[in-house]
């Protein structure tokens, strides 16, 4: 099932652009993987709807277009059709139910929460402070880094997000979706099992003059490198 979905999304987007990977659809963590699955799954379901509508429309417009023959005919009036109308009420409901199941499952797992709700022992906790227009990351041992996030691979990483001024949004497209960084409330967002690599991170909520430049780099490294880096 999943392979098919991946193939679908590759197919479709390959037509749109050749050569470059789309970061969100090339997930580098378990979290982002689940999200990419939802994206492809919903996309596939919706393509069904889209294709049906396109086909019906093309057919109807072509078949019933005005020609010299039918120009002066008055078509028969049809008020409606209960069966047909029920069909396109019930089928979409079914389709949406199919979509709702994984949506609920993943949303329940991944929604950002307030701090007390998450206590996972083996997770790595990092404080993220957003400020116009840079990011500060504070690690367990008190080490701080600016605009550079370093995390170990294959761990659960819990980000504690807080802003000192306006609302920002924390986003590393390859590793997971975004979470807003609020001034008055700490939010917690978890990314599971990131893979090694260097990824772009950015602020995704418009936050003022230099919103565009509020970017950071996320480096996912091996456990050893991480430990070494922490004590450096």
């Amino acid at each position: 099932m999943k392979n098919i979905l991946i193939r679908i999304r590759l197919l479709v987007f390959a037509c749109l652009l050749t050569g470059c990977d789309i970061s969100v659809l090339d997930p580098q963590s378990k979290t982002a993987d689940n999200q990419a699955f939802l994206i492809s799954f919903s996309f596939a379901l919706m393509m069904i709807v889209l294709i049906i509508v396109f086909l019906l429309m093309t057919r109807f417009v072509w078949k019933y277009r005005e020609t010299e023959h039918n120009k002066n005919t008055i078509p028969k009036d049809i008020k409606g059709n209960k069966k047909l109308e029920l069909t396109w009420t019930i089928l979409p409901i079914l389709l949406l139910t199919v979509l709702a199941v994984p949506t609920i499952a993943v949303t329940y797992n991944q929604s950002a929460t307030t701090p007390k709700a998450t206590t996972q022992d083996d997770a790595i906790h990092i404080d993220v402070t957003a400020q116009q227009f840079f990011w500060t990351f504070t690690y367990g041992n008190g080490k701080e880094s600016t605009n550079e996030l370093v995390i170990p691979e294959n761990k659960s990483i819990v980000f504690h997000l807080k802003s000192t001024d306006v609302i920002h949004s924390f986003w590393i497209p390859s590793l997971g979706g975004k979470t807003d960084v609020l001034p008055e409330k700490e939010l917690v967002y978890k990314i599971d099992n990131p893979k090694k690599g260097t990824y772009d991170g950015k602020c995704a909520e418009f936050c003022g003059v230099n919103h565009t430049k509020m970017r950071f780099t996320a480096r996912v490294v091996s456990e050893e490198t991480y430990q070494k880096w922490l004590t450096k």
Binding site: V24, A32, T103, S111, K178
Partner: peptide, 23 residues
């Protein structure tokens, strides 16, 4: 409009929306 509608349904998938949001 149907194209906008189907992306609307895609956006309603909350966990996927974490990726789409504000992009």
């Amino acid at each position: 409009f149907v194209m906008g509608g189907v992306t609307g349904v895609m956006l309603s998938v909350a966990a996927a929306n974490f990726q789409y949001h504000d992009t």
